[in-house]
Design a protein around this nucleic acid. Structure first.
Lengths: 98, 98
DNA sequence: ATAATTATTGGAGATTAGTTACAAAAAGGA
DNA sequence: TCCTTTTTGTAACTAATCTCCAATAATTAT
C-alpha cells in the first residue's frame, strides 16, 4: 500500500487553471503551447474542458526551465520529451480509458 | 527522473466530477460524505471549487470496497484511514501550500 | 531597416462544471 | 413503528473554461 498506484495516477489529470498555478505558466500560454502542439491535454469523451496529467505537468515544468536557459519553445519541448521518455512510457502503457 | 515527484503529486488534485468518474461514486454522494466528515477536499485559497488529491481518491476507492463488504460508511472511513496511514503521512509532510 | 517568423497576450460572448440549500425518499436497526 | 443513517433531487447561482478573432512583442533573416 506504499507504492504509487499508476492506474490511479494515470487518471488524475488537473484543470488548466490548476496546471497554470502548479507550473506558474499563464493559462493563455498553456493554450498557445497546446495549439502549436508542444504539449497535449488528455482527450476525453466525458470532459469538454482540458485536463493535464502528471506527465504533462512534469514536461511543462521542465520546459519552463529550458526556456529560462535560452532554448526556443520547440527545442525545449523536444529536450523535455527526450528527458522524460521513460516516464512517458509508463503513462502510455497504463493510459486512461475514459 | 524515474521516481515520482511527491511535491508535484501533492499538488495534483482533481475536481469532484473527475473524482466521481475515477472512483465510480456519484458526485452527490461524495458531497454527502464530505458533509459528514468522512472525506475531505483540499482547502485552497485560490479555488472555490473542491479538489481531491491522490490520497483522498485512494481512500474513496478503498471505502467503496469496504462498503460493498457490508461496513457502514463510518466504519469504512475508519478502516480506510488505518490502512492508508503511511500514505497519509507522506501527504501531510509534503502538503501543498496554495 | 524592413520583412517574416515566432511567441505571447487580450477580451467578448457562450458553454460547462461546480456551489449551496432545502427537501424528500430509501434503507437499516431497535 | 419510530429513529437514524444514507442517498438522491433540483433550483438558482457562481466559477471556470471554451473558442474565435485579433493585436502586440520579440527574434531572426534578407
Amino acid at each position: 500500500m506504499d507504492e504509487i498506484d499508476y492506474e490511479l495516477l494515470g487518471q488524475m489529470a488537473v484543470t488548466i487553471g490548476d496546471a497554470a498555478r502548479i507550473t506558474d505558466i499563464p493559462i493563455r500560454k498553456l493554450r498557445y503551447w497546446e495549439d502549436k502542439g508542444y504539449i497535449d491535454s488528455v482527450e476525453e469523451k466525458t470532459n469538454t474542458t482540458r485536463r493535464f496529467d502528471y506527465y504533462m505537468i512534469k514536461k511543462i515544468v521542465l520546459m519552463k526551465e529550458l526556456l529560462e536557459d535560452g532554448y526556443t519553445v520547440e527545442a525545449a519541448s523536444n529536450k523535455a520529451e527526450a528527458r522524460l521518455s521513460t516516464l512517458r512510457e509508463v503513462f502510455n502503457e497504463r493510459s486512461r480509458k475514459y
